[in-house]
Design a protein around this nucleic acid. Structure first.
Lengths: 216, 216, 216, 216
DNA sequence: TATGAATGAGGCTTCATTCAT
DNA sequence: AATGAATGAAGCCTCATTCAT
């Protein structure tokens, strides 16, 4: 079963045990959803036992919520890396779109957890104040760049930041979430490395065109 | 419990019974997903008994696949209604976008079934040739209009029909699929009747601008 | 395990199966209480399986409530046998006391279920209207006889029927319920056949003396 | 959680810790019974930790037995207060009955532990010599008063002290133990302050009448 | 003396499915 | 074509208890 040597390493390491459980749980919930995931299966893939899951997380729901939060927080770490301070509005907006697109691509497990949340009518998202506030920063960044571009006269004035944010999110999210069904119907073409580059630049292009085009 | 009079009406009406079961199953699978739906619950809401589900559909998977197909076919009926023959490329494309957007909005149960399929890596979609081919027509229409606009010199040449189709689908789908999580984080504003009108026209506007803008 | 021949006899005999489960459950809950009884143990002693318990009774609480009701109703069957119509108030009251005393003695399993109910603050008794109303008849009988005796001038006037009923119940119940602790402390003497006869007649004697004594 | 200051006070105070645990355990066992009580729950309500329970009492059974003994001894403290030396047999017997009745009323937690013992066939009571001998004194007192009254010619001769003791105990005990079920069926009337006074005096009256009535 | 972490065993319950008629 | 009864397997969770420090 479990490597006795390894277990000894973890003994009394509450944070380590919790983290181990969370990583496994996140993967399992992302893969199978709340209803589809199995506590037994999660425990099996863990360095510890099923009993510890209940010890630390209470019940399946508690574990799910913790895994959801873990998925968000883990992903958030890499989010700040983007530096747009020195860029003009166009380039800044392009950078934000590219970052969002690639960020979603890089974290399919979070996308899948959010898909599950939507299947569940965002029941657990609603429960967690922490989670609800998490994405506001992304919106704020779009708002700032948009405002700057509008002040500079580079961007058209009749564009709403929330709506723009929504469009960027929609396409970045759908790219990951609906890849299985879309590629089943229309082929893998769009999802090759090359295809994804084209897609990303097309989104950038279409958003910037929309924001900057004089005629129409 | 069940109205005896009504049941008598269905007696010997195999198609009626099957249809009844399918409609209930579709609603339940759309609501709870494959893993989350309960055969008992489905049977309960049916005019007939649990045994009949197994009689007609074999097992839960069989019922799910049948419900998935039913969801697609039921929705497909209303799809042809759109008449774009007399329209110019711009108006035709606008009509297609508006139709797609509203069509997705009008059929959340299908959206939810597709969400579930994506959670399941489109396992059942892949099984059904029937389902795979179903959406090709929508793509074809976009292709035709795009080609016409490009021939007329109204639309820019460097746009790919599949990519364009993808963008329209992405936003129309995400609008329904991710409403729970998005509205939890950013409010219901975008999802009021007025908000949805703005969103739809924004999508139309941005796509058409992208297709037609000379400068950039 | 189970006799295959016997099972075949029970097959499709829903009432038989339910009754079988109830009798076993009653015995187990009487013996161990709600918390102490084990569903596995009950199932084991049953002609059927654990699954059927849930099929018919939903959960442990449901089974407990059903067993409680069964205990009451089963005991109630023999209750009418007492014929006091032709008797004078003294003899009638004596008959009622003797009947109550012996009736409690004859049904320790019901006494034990009621003990358990009292440990649980009568939580389930309160839930069941059926159970609440069940003992009113006994009180009514005492009321009638008392009133008759008071009208006849045989019984003293300042006696309350409910209080009298309470005294009869108290001693008849305690005789069964507290036999373990009482006999541990004070010996089995009172609980031999002879001791029980003495006890019963002592109760009759003391109640009738109280009801009829002129002096004081 | 726990008041740190208070805990420091208890530190090194083994007797204090044990006493604290016992008081909590008594309350929990009285409330839920042996099977229904939870070690976790007891530990939670304690000033100390679960580990200490095992340290001092070995296991759940050990804790239960200790709590049972604690319940008896704690209650016993106030028992001597009754002074009947200067009273005649009638008044002395009345005083004993009143004392017993009120004493039971005042200590429902002991009554509930004894109820539980009876549910368990007095298993733990039988184990403890200490507990078995505890109530003999009460019986002795009744014996003495009864003998005195019989010698004086005030009480009838054919009354057995143990039986009399039993009757007093039965009614005093049942008043507390079966209040939940009795009041559920017949109302709270008998259990108001006024009702309890009436009940107590009725018991006194009926016992004394029985003991002293000449005619019948 | 004290404690947070850990746990095996067993508890209750639910699931999709099949049987017998 | 139809149904109420029945079920094995597996799910989630809780219990008293012990370990390591």
């Amino acid at each position: 079963m479990k490597d006795e040597q390894l277990r000894r390493t973890w003994k009394q390491d509450a944070e380590g045990v919790k983290h181990d459980i969370l990583m496994v749980a996140m993967a399992e919930f992302a893969e199978h959803g709340l209803a589809g995931a199995r506590i037994d299966e999660i425990a099996e893939k863990t360095k510890t036992s099923k009993r510890m899951i209940y010890y630390y997380f209470g019940d399946k729901d508690g574990l799910y919520l913790a895994a959801l939060e873990a998925a968000y927080t883990r992903v958030r770490a890499g989010e700040e890396d983007i530096d747009i301070e020195g860029l003009g509005p166009r380039d800044a907006m392009g950078a934000v779109i590219r970052f969002t697109f690639e960020h979603h691509r890089a974290h399919p497990e979070l996308i899948r957890m959010v898909m599950n949340e939507n299947v569940n009518h965002a029941a657990y998202l609603k429960k967690s104040e922490f989670l609800r506030d998490l994405n506001l920063r992304t919106l704020k960044r779009v708002e700032r760049i948009l405002a700057r571009g509008q002040d500079d006269g580079v961007f058209r004035k009749d564009v709403d930041a929330l709506m723009l944010h929504w469009q960027i999110q929609a396409q970045s999210f759908y790219n990951v979430s609906n890849r299985p069904s879309f590629s089943t119907k229309f082929g893998e073409e769009l999802f090759s490395d090359e295809g994804q580059n084209v897609m990303r630049e097309t989104i950038v292009d279409s958003v910037l065109t929309y924001l900057t085009c004089k005629a129409g």
